[in-house]
């Protein structure tokens, strides 16, 4: 997939959606996104963490340092109530965008 901004734009929605299935940490998030998107979304750590911190400051997610099964320190992120609400809004917003884009990019098949 193309430019950096395009990769980062839906990050908030994607992260919220991923955390719906339980708490997770950076590396795992990156791996999941890559796998599910079939390699189309290649996130890096340096891109991900600032977004996570931003979302944490907005109160959408919370974080906690825990010891991993391999006995290493890891920071786990999980969804908050506000995050859950935000996820619904984000989903609606992206669906709108999706529909609009489909119509705009492929006008012949579009139905009014």
């Amino acid at each position: 997939m193309g430019s950096k901004d395009l990769i980062a734009a839906p990050a908030k929605a994607v992260i919220l959606s991923l955390l719906l299935s339980g708490e997770n940490y950076g590396y795992q998030i990156i791996k999941r996104v890559r796998r599910v998107s079939g390699g189309a979304l290649q996130w890096s750590h340096t891109m991900l963490y600032p977004v996570l911190h931003q979302m944490e400051r907005e109160g959408l997610i919370r974080s906690e340092w825990k010891t991993s099964p391999e006995n290493r320190m890891r920071k786990y992120y999980s969804l908050t109530e506000r995050g859950l609400a935000e996820l619904a809004e984000e989903k609606a917003r992206w669906r709108e965008v999706q529909t609009a884009l489909r119509k705009l990019l492929d006008p012949m098949t579009a139905v009014d």
């Binding site: 950076g26 590396y27 795992q28 750590h45 963490y49 290493r72 320190m73 920071k75």
Partner: peptide, 11 residues
């Protein structure tokens, strides 16, 4: 932040 990046690297 640096510690978090380190954790990511180790993963």
């Amino acid at each position: 932040q640096a510690a978090e990046l380190e954790a990511g690297l180790r993963d």
